[in-house]
Design a protein around this nucleic acid. Structure first.
Lengths: 154, 154
DNA sequence: TAGAACGTTCAGTCAAGATTGAACGTAACG
DNA sequence: CGTTACGTTCAATCTTGACTGAACGTTCTA
């Protein structure tokens, strides 16, 4: 960002950061994501830190976060000790999948409660069954979405 | 919670709170949601505060939040100054919709950048077009999901 | 009109977690 | 070895936003 960068690019990066933040994810991770989306190439950690004006420590943490979600990956290059980072071939898929996981977790919480409340009033039981049904349907839909998305990507 | 409540119900409420928190939403809002899901009836603000062991101030804030998202609604009863709160008929729909809004916002941010970067390298432009396409597809899918969900609900 | 019960607001407090930066361990290279 | 460039870790700091509780305005009742 210190170096000349198109104002629109900078804006995208900052806005993406804010967007991620508003969704409860680290701001820097969002900026990282936007940067790598724009510049479709490999970055070293130091380069990322310099470009985004943030500490190497933070870069280390956030690249690890994005890597653990399958959004970016590390690349080694022979004759170069540095680690390179780049977007995976389908970062969106990774993001949807982590969403799926959270939804499944919620579904499980509800399912557990429903099982334990089986002896309670029929009403409560039905209520919980409805939520479960909703979650199951949502999860199925997201899976279908992923499949379709993959088809389109080719 | 002070009063006798099934342990499984308490657990559901607390876990839902944690789940919401991990998704960047207020914990109390999640607990509120779970409580109203379990007890399918109308609550006054004081009752909610007492049951969840939280301040009335917090209840006021969080009921407003949930109301703004269409998850709960206020009900007036003649001969009773108090305001009652209850889940809307389809709280899930509301939650998906607020998700949709955020996604649309992200899409717009990208679209804006793409427009302004039109003169830049073809590569960047294409990259951004891809993300936009992904978002549009996701938004469409979610809309379809909502429609299907409504059908099933009847 | 006074008093009580209610919901809202807001200044203050607190906690979570993001970010920094220095210290550290490691690998490459002379 | 000694030095340099790198990524990681972790204690300290900073920021954000949730939450509280007291003060307030309003409505109802007597």
């Amino acid at each position: 960002m210190t170096d000349s960068m198109h104002p629109a690019a900078e804006r995208l990066i900052e806005q993406m950061g804010l967007q991620w933040e508003s969704e409860g994810r680290p701001r820097i991770a969002g900026r990282l994501f936007a940067l790598m989306l724009l510049e479709d190439r490999d970055f070293t950690l130091g380069e990322l830190a310099h470009t985004l004006q943030a500490s190497r420590g933070s870069m280390s943490t956030n690249t690890r976060l994005l890597e653990s979600q399958g959004v970016i990956e590390r690349v080694a290059k022979s004759g170069d000790r540095r680690i390179y980072y780049r977007l995976t071939s389908d970062p969106y898929r990774a993001m949807i999948e982590s969403h799926l996981k959270r939804m499944e977790r919620t579904k499980d919480v509800v399912a557990q409660a429903r099982k334990e409340l089986a002896i309670e009033t029929k009403k409560k039981h039905t209520r919980l069954a409805e939520i479960e049904r909703f979650h199951k349907f949502a999860i199925t839909t997201m899976n279908t979405f992923l499949t379709e998305h993959l088809k389109r990507a080719t």
